[in-house]
Nucleic acid binder design. Structure first.
Lengths: 150, 150
DNA sequence: CGCAAGTTAGTTGTGCACAACTCAATTGAC
DNA sequence: GTCAATTGAGTTGTGCACAACTAACTTGCG
């Protein structure tokens, strides 16, 4: 892979553009998800938590936070809202009283069916091919990994 | 570019990974920027506004919002904080009294020098090559464009 | 001219994200 | 066994993002 020489100024501009593009794309996704999830009564971060529970079953707050890279300051109020909405149930772990297990209610389980068509709509909205989505996912994963080092 | 057939299930999973990767990468960038900008007393969105002003000079709130794709509900309090920090000055436009012009103060201009090394640090932290950064920027730009349609 | 429609900032309310902190439960060093 | 350090959840405070709304101003149509 050969590359023409790149000036310092261009490098800096490129960096700005990448950071900004990432920021903008993330918000653009949020806006489209807002519509797609409106009828389910979920926000995107709430949807992410539900995905974890649908896939893995009951989990302590800690595990959910590790999977989504979110801390308790974000998850605690979010989970409280999901509980108020009747989608999850919170109970102290018998083995370790510090730990709180999050478990889907019947309504939470049932919501899964209505959420099934969402990913397809989102994917179509990106306008990318499968190969491009793969490339994008791969680059983003490497960036996140590298940034997490620092 | 040939692509093997992809099952529905795989498509849906891939989509989740892309959206989540984007979300995670955006937050990872935010965390690294938080450190890089701490000594300047700026958050990343505040830094974006300063970049616009450093590059284009005095601008009405509307123009800044268009460049950064942010609405007045986000910008008004953010600009008020920059004003409190002594970095910008806000004045009504003489021609159009509805419009508010944002102008850098002396301190705001001077901050530019101290902000110069930031992009290089960020770029190094991504761990990507120039070609990869270009690819990433291009894909993100297309995604954002497509999502803004919907 | 005079008023309806559109534009521009700002306000309010909700929710996410994270730092810094508290508190209770657990673990480990001694 | 006791107590200090660690761990897990939650709270508080700050700031971003956006929807829905208001207020002030401008423009253009009659």
């Amino acid at each position: 892979m050969t590359t023409l020489p790149v000036s310092d100024a261009e490098l800096l501009r490129l960096d700005h553009q990448v950071c900004f593009s990432l920021h903008a794309a993330s918000r653009a996704f949020g806006n489209v998800y807002r519509d797609a999830l409106k009828e389910l009564g979920l926000t995107y971060p709430q949807y992410l938590v539900m995905l974890v529970l649908w896939e893995h079953g009951p989990e302590p707050v800690k595990s959910i936070g590790e999977r989504l890279r979110l801390d308790s300051g974000t998850l605690s109020p979010l989970l409280k809202r999901l509980e108020t909405a009747g989608l999850v149930h919170r109970e102290r772990s018998p083995e370790d009283e510090r730990s709180v297990i999050i478990r889907l209610t019947g309504a939470g389980e049932e919501l899964r069916e209505r959420a099934l068509p969402v990913p397809r709509r989102m994917m179509a909205a990106t306008g990318l091919t499968v190969d491009e989505l793969r490339t994008l996912r791969s680059l983003l994963g490497r960036v996140t990994g590298a940034l997490d080092e620092a």
